[in-house]
Design a protein around this nucleic acid. Structure first.
Length: 238
DNA sequence: AGTAACTTTCCTGATT
DNA sequence: CAATCAGGAAAGTTAC
């Protein structure tokens, strides 16, 4: 399960202050978190907000991020144990992490402790502070590294940004419909800073996912289904 | 620096 | 007819 994750990935010298990773990337727009950010396209970094101040939603997004980033098995995580604020998260012992997420719990605990020690670290704050966000806006953003299927998934899961572009056809089975194809393409293009994106091209990329089991073919126009290798979309796991 | 994975671009032809 | 689907091919990009 964790063969792709070696312990060295989480050694203390591993930086969790990745300067390419923004708070927005991890936690979405400021609409959810009016207390943290005030710029619409802010690029300040998530380490600028200590985990103690995270909301439940932040905690959930962080778990998802860890699964995506470190290839942890999302199915081994009991999300109901993590329906808690950042403050509560920080008060959890390593044993409690293991209880809630098995072997992944150990890694999650370790990652969290790294973030906690690095979030107030001056070098992180220096590079990650809101004041310095302008310089980062010119650097490579991990927005560009987000995969298409994750972008689609996250859009599906955030009605505020969705604007009726995507909608669930069958929530349990992970079947969804592209309602506004051109709008979807435009939004994807926006994320990739590519104004030549079209639904034609986007759908070609989606079709490649059939091969890898991220998506499954549905014999209906503009309808797709998450495959067994897609994760993070299931309602009861959120 | 090299490679593999992923995405974009373009295309031909089929289907709705 | 216009939009979408299916993939092949190849080039471009990103992550490691």
């Amino acid at each position: 399960m964790l063969d792709s994750v070696t312990h060295s990935t989480f050694l203390p010298n591993t930086s969790f202050c990745d300067p390419l990773m923004s708070w927005t990337d991890l936690f979405g727009t400021e609409e959810y978190y009016p207390g943290f950010e005030h710029q619409t396209t802010c690029d300040s970094y998530w380490t600028s907000v200590p985990p103690e101040y995270w909301t439940k939603r932040h905690v959930w997004e962080w778990l998802q991020f860890c699964c995506d980033q470190y290839k942890l098995d999302i199915n081994s995580i009991s999300f109901c144990h993590f329906n808690i604020s950042g403050l509560q998260l920080c008060s959890m012992s390593q044993e409690e992490f293991v209880d809630a997420a098995g072997i992944c719990g150990e890694y999650l605990y370790f990652i969290l402790q790294n973030i906690r020690t690095q979030a107030p670290d001056s070098s992180c704050l220096k590079t990650g502070s809101i004041k310095n966000q302008e310089s980062h806006s010119h650097s490579r953003s991990s927005l560009q590294s987000s995969h298409l299927w994750e972008f689609v998934r996250d859009l599906l899961l955030s009605p505020e940004e969705n604007c009726g572009i995507l909608e669930w056809e069958d929530r349990e089975q992970g079947i969804f419909r592209v309602v506004k194809s051109e709008a979807l393409a435009k939004m994807w293009g926006q994320r990739k800073k590519n104004d030549r994106m079209t639904y034609e091209k986007l759908s070609r990329a989606l079709r490649y996912y059939y091969k890898t089991g991220i998506l499954e073919r549905v014999d209906r126009r503009l309808v797709y289904k998450f495959g067994k290798n897609a994760h993070g979309w299931q309602e009861d796991k959120l």
